[in-house]
Design a binder for these strands. Structure first.
Length: 500
RNA sequence: GCGCCUUUAGCUCAGCUGGUAGAGCAACUGACUCUUAAUCAGUGGGUCGCAGGUUCGAUCCCUGCAAGGCGCACCA
């Protein structure tokens, strides 16, 4: 059977058997480490001066053999460190055993530290042992793993071959931790609300559907957390947030993965003005603690996240970009403006006047918002869950935050008038085809909850993946998600199948 | 969804509008007791993404399919 294996796999299998023949367990149970590679580097002077023996474990990343001696690098989570083996140190038999090791194997070593004549901190190995035999080779040492498809499908190899990948994910964790910390400090309570919901809502999007056998019930994977978090506000949790996966059954591209991470928080007795102050503080704090600076280079632009961010009224921005005030423009007039500019008519899921406004805003306004800007006071047509503007009933107290032409957050004074909410839901349904899953459904249970009284509340949502992209300089959402959705790989074969 | 592009050894890539494939690294054999993209000498390794078509002959030209990337459009 082994004869039919690829030569490289075959050689590793042969070495595995040779090791077993020498009574070496290729998969032992544990290894006592005294140091990480980074600790050896950090404490080198002390370790060297006192001749202290250190024990490290890691993956073999390179081997340079020189007859009766060899150099190698092993990698642990502290980084790479060089090891030095001499036949007269470890003995002839052990030196021979090392030749049965391959790149990618995981080994443990014990020895003293020294500096080579070229200055590299190195462990002079007195003893070593195999901790895990690898049966497949690592990618090429110099170019690493370049193929993006393989990097996403086999992220474990990507992490081994391309160490900078891990830095992005460390930053990701730091970012979510900092947002948690920021909200916790201010008395917000982190909660978990249902992923499986009988009625989806909180935004316009097409959901995933599933089925609960026990109740013979159709359920949807959540598209947003909003309506459940607001129920909790009604229940008296005055500051509440959730960081969670949401699911939208829509297109995929470098900004969209079907499952993605949202932060949403709700703050009772506050309005959207309070919210903007809090948000700019949070973005500034997270950015400076992650990056060490409030300045981000994004393409040609240097973006400054120091508050306060600019506030720009929606229709003022539109007037500046379109060249005329369009607050009173009707659907037909908006259509003419678009046609005059050679713009295609909207295909978006939003209907009526809102669709044209949305299209004009995306095309003409958003790309210009490079420095952090709150676009404020949206038309009511676009915002079925936001409260009417206190000074103008055709607007809502809503803002979206734009940085580098991309939206990085959406907040508003929450609509808490149950009758208004009911009619907005109904307005959303009007003119839509029955069964259109993108329409915001009427959530009677939520309306029932609202009838009990939700305090004045401000709420905010943020796409965490996008925010991580902004702060890490990644241009694809797949670079900030360990295992982005991929079509199944039909050719993948386990080693068993390759043997058969 | 539409357009453009990619798919060749384990990895990174060459391959001339057609004559059944090359390099580096990795692997294997040998030399070498401070190397570091170690070096030197030698050896093996391929269903050229899949399926058809054109042709005496296809990695190359044509069609279809698959997976992926990049633009555009939509949402976060």
């Amino acid at each position: 059977m082994i004869d039919e294996l690829n030569e490289i796999l075959k050689n590793r299998r042969i070495k595995l058997e040779q090791l077993r023949a020498r009574n070496i367990n290729p998969y032992p149970y544990r290894f006592e480490r005294t140091h990480m590679s980074s600790q050896v580097v950090g404490n080198f002077d002390l370790l060297e001066a006192n001749g202290i023996a250190v024990r490290l474990a890691g993956r073999l990343m390179s081997i340079r053999s020189h007859g009766k001696t060899l150099f190698a690098h092993i990698k642990d989570s502290g980084g790479l460190i060089q090891i030095y083996l001499r036949k007269d140190d470890v003995g002839e038999e052990m030196f021979e055993i090392f030749t049965l090791f391959d790149l990618g194997d995981i080994i443990g070593v014990e020895g003293t530290v020294f500096r080579t004549k070229t200055g590299e901190i190195t462990i002079r190995v007195a003893q070593f042992e195999l901790l895990t035999k690898a049966l497949r080779p690592l990618p090429e040492k110099w170019h690493g793993l370049q193929d993006k498809e393989l990097r996403y499908r086999r992220r474990y190899i990507d992490l081994i071959a391309n160490p900078e990948v891990l830095e992005v994910f460390k930053a990701r964790t730091k970012i979510t931790n900092l947002m948690r910390q920021f909200l916790d400090e201010r008395g917000f309570l982190e909660v978990e609300t249902p992923v499986l919901q009988p009625v989806y809502g909180g935004t316009n999007a097409r959901p995933f559907e599933t089925h609960l056998n026990a109740l013979d019930l159709k359920l949807y994977l959540r598209i947003a957390d909003e309506l459940y978090l607001k129920r909790l506000v009604i229940g008296g949790i005055e500051k509440v947030y959730e960081i969670s996966k949401d699911f939208r059954n829509e297109g995929m591209d470098r900004n969209h993965n079907p499952e993605f991470t949202m932060l949403e928080f709700y703050w009772a007795y506050a309005d959207y003005n309070d919210l903007m102050k809090l948000i700019e503080e949070m973005y500034f704090r997270v950015a400076t603690l992650v990056l060490g600076t409030e300045k981000i280079i994004r393409g040609e632009n240097e973006i400054n996240l120091a508050p306060p961010f600019k506030r720009m009224p929606y229709f003022k921005a539109m007037a500046e970009s379109v060249g005329e005030d369009i607050f009173d423009a009707d659907e037909k007039q908006l259509q003419e403006i678009m046609t005059a500019r050679g713009m295609t008519l909207p295909t978006s899921r939003i209907f009526g006047r809102g669709a044209y406004l949305d299209e004009l805003c995306k095309e003409l306004v958003e790309p210009k918002l490079i420095q952090p800007t709150f676009l404020v006071d949206y038309p009511i047509e676009l915002s079925p869950l936001a409260k009417k503007h206190r000074a103008n009933p055709r607007l809502v107290e809503r803002f979206e935050l734009y940085v580098d032409g991309v939206e990085y957050g959406n907040g508003f004074s929450e609509l808490n008038d149950p009758d208004d909410q009911r009619s907005r839901f109904q307005g959303q349904q009007a003119g839509r085809k029955p069964g259109d899953l993108e329409a915001h459904p009427v959530d009677d249970d939520f309306l029932f909850a609202l009838d009990h009284g939700m305090p004045p509340t401000a709420g905010f949502g943020l796409g965490v993946d996008r925010f991580v992209m902004l702060l890490t300089g990644c241009h694809s959402i797949r670079d900030v998600i360990f295992f982005p959705i991929m079509k199944p790989e039909p050719e993948i074969q386990s080693l068993d199948k390759e043997i058969l």
